[in-house]
Computed example of a mutant assay.
Amino acid sequence: MTTPPRILSIAGSDSSGGAGIQADIKTITMLGGYAMTAITAITAQNTCGVTDVVALSPEMVGAQIDACVSDIGVDAVKIGMLGSAEIAHVVAARLEELGVPVVFDPVMVATSGSVLADAATIAAFSRLMACAALTTPNVPELEALGGDAALEALGVAYLAKGGDAEGDVVEDRLMVPGEAPVIWRAPRIVTRHTHGTGCTLSSAIATGLGQGLSLPEAVEGAREFVRRALSAAPGLGAGHGPMGHQAVR
């Protein structure tokens, strides 16, 4: 029996199950990985919005990471919602010593529009981007991080996601320092069931990297997984509904 890649998700909990840790576990499992978690925050949320957030202590987040690394081991890491600048620095300190591929989804705002990162937390993102194999900003996140010019000046690899842009075609750009851009274009899937797309994409990329895929291969497979999950959405909730992770085979 082949040992599955060990994927650690460092992210917040979504009580409605569509995004965050819950989406990551579903994605990693469906793609053949072994999912572990370090929960950074607990949210009360559903498809209509986030009603409350409680961040865990930085010490508890660090302890969760240490517990996973010291026993099970880790092949790749996905980072999502962090909850505070202090947590961001604790996570960065652990990952700088780990030496495995890290995919950083710089979560700032939920699909519903709720703010999930304050200015101090966003300021700490540069340290995480520096140790990540890939950062995956959407359109507003890329702008908040300073745009293409800022990320290129930092010398980080990033996937500029185009799902939030206008138009019938979605374009995603993989930008790796010293390499030609890799661009994917696909017809937009028109649906309101987009809750957790960023979480799902980043954890799918991390799983691919943990399986030994190259960065372009991991991104391509993750994009296809997200598109299939969007098409298989179960139609739940009154707002931005969850995707159909479990229906993807």
Rank of each mutant, 00 (worst) to 15 (best):
G20A: 11
Q22A: 00
L56G: 05
V54A: 13
Y34V: 06
A35E: 05
S57I: 02
I10D: 00
S13R: 06
T43I: 09
A19T: 10
S15H: 06
T29H: 07
E59L: 11
L31P: 02
S57T: 14
G49N: 03
G12P: 01
V53N: 02
G18K: 02
L8I: 01
G12D: 05
T43S: 12
A41Q: 13
L8Q: 05
T37H: 06
Y34Q: 10
K26A: 10
T27Y: 04
I21H: 04
D52T: 06
T29R: 02
I42W: 08
G18P: 00
Q45E: 13
G32T: 01
I39C: 14
A38Q: 11
A19W: 08
N46F: 05
T43Q: 03
T51K: 10
I21N: 07
C48W: 01
G12C: 08
S13C: 13
G12I: 02
T37D: 06
L56I: 05
S15L: 10
Q22F: 01
D52H: 14
A23Y: 07
I7M: 07
S57H: 10
I28L: 09
I10H: 03
I28Y: 05
V54M: 13
K26M: 05
V50C: 08
S16P: 03
E59R: 13
C48Y: 02
T43A: 14
G12N: 02
C48Q: 15
V53Q: 06
S13W: 06
L31Y: 06
A19D: 13
G18I: 12
V50I: 11
G33I: 12
P58N: 14
L8W: 06
S57C: 03
A41W: 04
G17V: 12
I39Y: 04
V53S: 03
A11F: 03
M60Y: 11
C48V: 10
M60G: 03
Y34A: 13
I10P: 03
G33A: 14
I7H: 00
A41Y: 06
A38C: 12
A11T: 12
I39A: 10
G17N: 07
S13G: 08
Q45S: 07
L8P: 01
D14K: 01
N46D: 15
D14H: 02
Y34D: 13
V50A: 04
V53K: 08
Q45Y: 05
L56D: 06
A23T: 10
T43G: 02
I28S: 05
T37N: 09
I28K: 08
S16Q: 07
A11S: 15
L56R: 14
S16D: 09
C48R: 14
S16L: 09
T40C: 10
G49S: 06
E59V: 11
I39T: 10
S15E: 05
I39S: 09
T27F: 04
S9E: 04
I39V: 15
M60T: 13
M36V: 03
S9Q: 12
V54N: 07
M60Q: 11
T29N: 00
G17A: 03
D24F: 01
